[in-house]
Amino acid sequence: MERSYDIETAIPTPAEYVELRRKAGMSPKEVETARVGLKNSLFAVTLRDSSKLIGMGRVIGDGACFFHVVDIAVDPSYQGRGLGKVIMSQITAYLDAHAPKSAYVSLMADVPADQLYKQFGFHYTYPKSLGMYKRY
């Protein structure tokens, strides 16, 4: 029998966020900085197994010209069940409803997650542009 999970359009607590990022092998964040960043999300979706946070994704940006998809994460013990697709479906529905025709929606894709994002219409920017970053 297929297991169902609770899908919420809400941000996780800062402590949950930091812990899920750690479990998923993402760069660490401090709880206090997470508190500020999370409340400034344009959109967030969480997946829960009972009350346990098992997946999430967010959209950040200016709400008109630029949207950036971030924090797509699934607890490793729940990976391989299509939960990344569930998260991206929720994010896509938000963007379809809120992003104007001229908006630029971006994300940074880790390999092999780039294959998931391709299913939702994302394309590589290379060779016209390259993603760049600066970490503090």
Rank of each mutant, 00 (worst) to 15 (best):
S129R: 12
S102T: 13
L107T: 01
V59K: 03
A113E: 11
F66I: 12
V86P: 10
L107H: 04
F67Y: 15
V74F: 13
P28Y: 02
L53S: 03
A113I: 04
H98S: 08
V86C: 05
M56P: 03
A109M: 03
K39S: 09
V31D: 09
R48T: 00
R81C: 05
K52I: 10
K39V: 10
A97V: 04
T92C: 08
T92Y: 06
A73K: 07
G55P: 04
V59T: 03
I87T: 08
T33A: 11
A113F: 00
A73Y: 02
D71I: 07
L130N: 11
L47M: 02
D114N: 13
K29W: 11
A109E: 03
V36P: 03
Y104H: 12
E32G: 01
D96Y: 00
H98W: 04
G55Y: 07
G80K: 09
V69C: 10
V45T: 10
S50E: 14
A97P: 02
I87L: 13
H68Y: 15
A109N: 04
Y124C: 11
G37C: 02
K128Q: 13
H123D: 09
G121L: 09
N40F: 05
G84N: 09
L83C: 08
L47T: 01
K128P: 04
E32H: 13
Q79L: 05
L116M: 09
R48F: 00
S41L: 01
K52N: 08
A93D: 14
G84T: 08
S51L: 01
G82S: 05
M56G: 01
F120R: 07
Y104V: 15
I60P: 04
Y94A: 07
K101H: 10
V36Y: 05
D96R: 14
S51W: 00
L130I: 15
L95T: 09
Y104T: 15
E30Q: 14
T33S: 14
R81P: 06
F66W: 11
D62A: 00
H98F: 07
I54F: 05
N40I: 01
V86T: 15
G57T: 06
D96K: 15
C65L: 15
L53H: 02
F43Y: 11
G80E: 10
A109L: 02
I91E: 07
A93C: 12
V105E: 06
D75L: 03
V111G: 01
I54Q: 08
L95F: 08
D114I: 01
C65W: 11
T92H: 12
D96L: 12
G84Q: 06
L107S: 00
M56S: 04
G61R: 05
S77M: 09
R81L: 15
K101A: 14
G121P: 03
L116P: 10
S106N: 10
Y94S: 06
P112E: 00
T125K: 04
S106V: 10
Q115W: 06
G63K: 02
M88W: 01
I87E: 06
S51G: 07
A34Q: 08
I54T: 06
V36F: 05
H68C: 14
A109G: 03
I60M: 10
A44Y: 00
R58K: 09
G37F: 00
T46K: 00
S51K: 05
L47P: 00
K118C: 05
S51A: 07
G61A: 01
S106E: 13
H68S: 14
A93V: 12
Q119E: 15
N40H: 13
K52R: 15
D75Y: 05
D71S: 06
L42A: 02
F67G: 02
